[in-house]
Design a protein around this nucleic acid. Structure first.
Lengths: 243, 243
DNA sequence: AATTGTTTCAAACAGTCGTTTGACTTATCA
DNA sequence: TGATAAGTCAAACGACTGTTTGAAACAATT
């Protein structure tokens, strides 16, 4: 009557095919531009299947988002251990980069996440609560240890965002990067180089801030440029002096 | 006949109103989701006005993109001068942040750029050539000086992307930031704090890399985490909901 | 006043979209 | 075997999309 084997097998089969195809389509063109007809065509299902299995297009998207997030987390979890904070930061950066940039995950998870962050849907709140906030808390703990116990919470937050910003840049701005520096692929060795660089850069940055004490008086404050609307075209720009 | 005053005045008026309204709409919902009917309604023009003045929706978008880019560049140009490289980096970061995050420019320029980078249109190539690549070259020159004359070009590139990544994070991921840390506004003083932090963090990061010599052996390589597929924890299947 | 070219406009066109419908097939159990 | 329910399907619905059309309004010249 209710839950026989083959029934559920058929049910789960088309449902899975829909989730599979939908992940591809949503990653390729985004939620708004994706059509249920295209998704169903790729899944080999009827147009009404989305409505039947997920209620509507938004319900399907929400499920895709949650599933991709779980999949990425289980594929490249943040390594836990009692390493020193520097190694923990490296592990965090590496796993994060792999989740959003590894060829196997970028095509779906990375691109869907990038779209969701720029153009959030109703599913973002759930994503933040279930996936993003735990990650944020992990990073906060690591950076807090690196900065020292007396670190300003605001400074910890800023450093965390500096780390994540470096990582996500390669995911969010890939179309621009490909045009600026063609030929720089992001395969396994490229990811390794990226991991090493971001880890070293971030460690030096955090330690530099920790050394200068309170973050309000660190580095050298840049010259102000505000309120200089200038009559449209600025004349000569740049003057790169060679060394 | 040809170019009478009121004729061109009317022409330029509706054309300007369209560009103005289109910038708002494109920033709010993106190119695909924007409708020419909405744009024309806000501009007080007829639906056919877009086709008449710009050929089609894509032509209007291309003009909006180019105009917003010029406007932002003239409003907050990168300060030029013979300052020391550290101050030049600070000025670059400050002007960049103001262009994409200042309340006056974020609502349009910042959001449109963020969308264009995640979901590029045919107009991206022109944007990269006219606006982004010059900026990239400026940053390259600054970082190159900071790293020293013998710096590896790849290291210079990576450091530049670390800087830009930190900046754009606050523009691209604002929906997530607002949910993670509510109440952290990005007004003028918030932008100042951001400028100071990113400048100090980046200077420390760059100088840290410069100190360790070649970038291939810097920082401490994080522990590998790859190859832990785990048996996919999707257990129970959900039942279909019917109305 | 008649003519010219430019700009606006309501209306319509041709598609595509998400979703619903009702019939049809399949599998389960009394 | 017949009753019951689940799942699938082609077809259609209503709404919305970008774009076009031909007429009208407009200002300047002839």
């Amino acid at each position: 009557m209710r839950t026989a084997a083959s029934k559920n097998a058929n049910h789960a089969a088309t449902r899975g095919a829909l989730l599979h195809a939908a992940a591809d389509v949503f990653a390729e063109v985004g939620f708004r531009s994706a059509t249920v007809r295209d998704i169903c065509r790729r899944a080999g299902a009827n147009v009404a299947a989305v409505s039947y299995h997920f209620g509507d297009k938004a319900g399907l998207y929400s499920e895709v988002l949650a599933e991709q997030s779980r999949l990425a987390q289980s594929r490249y979890p943040v390594p836990t251990g009692d390493d020193e904070p520097a190694a923990q930061l490296g592990g965090f950066i590496r796993s994060f980069l792999q989740r959003v940039l590894s060829p196997e995950l970028h095509a779906r998870h990375g691109r869907i996440m990038a779209r969701e962050m720029v153009e959030p849907t109703a599913a973002l709140d759930r994503l933040v609560a279930e996936a993003i906030r735990p990650q944020s808390e992990m990073l906060r703990a690591i950076v807090s240890e690196l900065l020292g116990s007396a670190a300003d919470p605001a400074a910890v937050r800023l450093c965390g965002m500096s780390v994540v910003g470096q990582i996500l840049f390669y995911c969010h701005c890939r179309p621009v990067i490909d045009r600026l520096f063609p030929g720089a692929e992001l395969d396994a060795t490229g990811l390794d180089r990226l991991t090493t660089h971001i880890t070293a850069f971030s460690l030096a940055g955090i330690r530099g801030l920790a050394a200068t004490g309170t973050p309000s008086r660190s580095g050298q404050p840049p010259r102000t440029t505000r309120g200089a609307p200038r009559p449209a075209v600025s004349g000569t720009v740049r003057k790169p002096k060679r060394s």
